[in-house]
Design a protein around this nucleic acid. Structure first.
Length: 226
DNA sequence: TCATTAAATTGTT
DNA sequence: AACAATTTAATGA
């Protein structure tokens, strides 16, 4: 396993810090390995850390009152999440679960606050990240209202591969069709039909327990019947 | 390593 | 929602 510093070095915001600041961040941050299926953090937890995926893949999900699963997003390495919760000082509202064996970095709130109070480059990173994510969620709402199911599945998958937000995303997405349904807001059966359609169009490949993206641009621009 | 069994996922109705 | 078929993971010889 690589050292924490090597793992942090994979994140662009960390690269932009001066050497002494890097040392402090490294000293404060806790690293942990989380096996596939394990919890990275849980709903209701006190928010004591900003969380980084230094290796692997994590999904952000919550279970609503009626027991239905909602997958909000998927975070590949080297991605960080939970800055909203750290800023707001509330209990966590979602679970984070490892989709593969992953390495997770936990930066204490105090360090996060110190960085955002003192480091312009870090603040800029946060702004870009928050803005990009806002764009992603607006896009998701737009897709929900304006597009048909097949297009929604295609767009939703494509948006997970946003190169600015998720530069490290590999082409395989280890989510079952049921879980993709929870991500898009469609039944498993409907997702199954859509995936098959997209596979026939040569845009992705359906594997057992996951999919592989073949043509990202084609997925984003996909239109049924076109 | 191989065969068997259980569990998860998928394709279809 | 239900069912059968398929794939993977786990178990033990």
């Amino acid at each position: 396993m690589s050292k924490l510093k090597d793992m942090l070095a994979g994140s662009r915001w960390f690269q932009e810090l001066s050497a002494d600041v890097q040392r402090r961040v490294e000293a404060d941050t806790i690293a942990r390995a989380v096996a596939k299926g394990g919890f990275v953090c849980r709903e209701g937890d006190a928010v004591d850390h900003w969380i980084g995926v230094t290796e692997g893949l994590v999904k952000i999900a919550m279970v609503n009152a009626t027991g239905k699963l909602f997958n909000a997003m998927v975070v590949p390495a080297p991605g960080w999440f939970g800055e909203g919760s750290v800023l707001k000082d509330e209990p966590r509202r979602y679970d984070a679960i490892a989709l593969r064996d992953s390495h997770i970095a936990y930066m204490p709130r105090a360090t996060f606050r110190w960085l955002s109070d003192n480091n312009i480059a870090f603040v800029r990173f946060l702004m870009v990240q928050l803005n990009e994510r806002l764009g992603q969620f607006i896009g998701a709402v737009e897709s929900d209202r304006l597009l048909g199911p097949d297009e929604r599945v295609a767009r939703c998958i494509a948006s997970l591969f946003n190169p600015i937000l998720y530069p490290g995303m590999s082409s395989v997405l280890p989510l079952s069709q049921e879980e993709i349904g929870c991500l898009v807001g469609l039944s498993r059966q409907r997702v199954n039909r859509s995936l098959k359609l997209l596979e026939d169009a040569g845009l992705l490949r359906v594997d057992y327990g996951g999919i592989r993206v073949l043509k990202l641009g084609g997925l984003y621009d996909f239109q049924a019947g076109a």
